[in-house]
C-alpha cells in the first residue's frame, strides 16, 4: 500500500510544479483527447517525445512514473492482448478461426499500449506535481459554470478536498492497525482465500470505527465553527493565471497542429 504512487503529491519546485492547477488539469484532459489523433508511428514517436519532455520538466525521476504504472500493468496487458487477438488485417502470423495474430493486430496492440502508458504518465505528472488542495481548487474553478445548472459544485469540491485530506490519515491508520494485528500474530497474504479474507476483519472494523468517529468530530467542528453550505464564499487560496499557464496551453495547441500534420489521413487504414 505504501508503494502506491497514483494520487500522491511530490513536493518540488519545477516549472510544472509552478503551473496553475487549472492549466495542468485542462492540459492533461486535453492530452487524453488529442492522443486519439495519433494513428501512425510518426505521431506516436512525437507524442513520446512530448511525454518525455514533460516528465523531464517535472524533475521527478522516471522510476517514480514507472512505479505508478506497475499496479495497472496486468490490466493494460490484458486489454492489449485482446486487441492483438481480435484485430485482423495485413500479414497473418497465427490463424485460429476468429482469433488471429496479424500484423495490424500487433501494431494496433502496441499503439494501445503506448496510449495507456502515456495517459498514466501524464495524469501522474499532474497528481505528483500538484498539491491535492490545489487540485480541488482547480477543479472547483473549472466546474464553476455548472453552478448555473444547479450542480452543487462547492459542496462537491468540499467533499473532494475533505476526502483527499484524509487519505494520508487513513493510510497511516491502516498501517498502524495492520502492525498491531501483526504483532498479535495475524499473517497477511497467507493461506487460503477464505483465510485471507478473515484477516481483513480485524483491519477494517477498527478503521471503520475510527473513520466514523472522525467524520462525526469533523461535522461537529464544522457546525460549531458556523459552517453553512448555502452561502457565497470567497477563497483563501487564490489561483493566479500567469503567462506560463497560457504558454502551456499554447504548447498543447501546437501539439495538436503537429499531430494533425503528421497523422496519416485515412490512408493505410
Amino acid at each position: 500500500m505504501n508503494k502506491l504512487i497514483l494520487g500522491r503529491y511530490f513536493p518540488g519546485d519545477s516549472w510544472i510544479h509552478r503551473l496553475d492547477p487549472r492549466a495542468k488539469l485542462v492540459a492533461a484532459i486535453y492530452f487524453i483527447f488529442v492522443l486519439f489523433l495519433a494513428n501512425n508511428w510518426q505521431t506516436y514517436v512525437f507524442l513520446w517525445l512530448f511525454t518525455t519532455a514533460v516528465i523531464l520538466l517535472s524533475n521527478i525521476s522516471i522510476r517514480t512514473y514507472l512505479r505508478g504504472v506497475r499496479p495497472l500493468i496486468w490490466l493494460i496487458l490484458f486489454t492489449v492482448f485482446l486487441q492483438v487477438l481480435f484485430t485482423a488485417g495485413g500479414e497473418i502470423y497465427v490463424d485460429l478461426g476468429p482469433i488471429t495474430i496479424s500484423k495490424f493486430g500487433l501494431i494496433n496492440g502496441f499503439y494501445i499500449f503506448c496510449r495507456f502508458i502515456m495517459i498514466i504518465f501524464i495524469s501522474t505528472v499532474v497528481t505528483l506535481t500538484t498539491k491535492p488542495i490545489d487540485l480541488t481548487d482547480g477543479m472547483n474553478a473549472l466546474l464553476r459554470p455548472l453552478r448555473k445548472l444547479k450542480v452543487p459544485v462547492d459542496e462537491l469540491s468540499l467533499m473532494l478536498s475533505i476526502s483527499l485530506r484524509f487519505i494520508p490519515n487513513l493510510l497511516d491508520e491502516t498501517q498502524k492497525v495492520m502492525d498491531a494485528q501483526r504483532a498479535r500474530g495475524t499473517e497477511f497474504g497467507e493461506g487460503s482465500l477464505v483465510k485471507q479474507m478473515k484477516t481483513l476483519v480485524p483491519i477494517f472494523l477498527p478503521l471503520f470505527v475510527s473513520s466514523l468517529n472522525r467524520a462525526e468530530d469533523m461535522a461537529n467542528v464544522m457546525e460549531v465553527r458556523g459552517y453553512q453550505s448555502d452561502v457565497k464564499r470567497s477563497t483563501f487560496r487564490q489561483l493566479s493565471w500567469q503567462q506560463k499557464d497560457t504558454i502551456s496551453l499554447l504548447v498543447m495547441a501546437m501539439l495538436t497542429v503537429a499531430l494533425l500534420v503528421l497523422r496519416s489521413n485515412g490512408f493505410g487504414h
Partner: peptide, 9 residues
C-alpha cells in the same frame, strides 16, 4: 502500541 485501544475489533 501507542493508543492500543484502536486495535480492538
Amino acid at each position: 502500541f501507542q493508543f492500543p485501544e484502536s486495535q480492538l475489533f
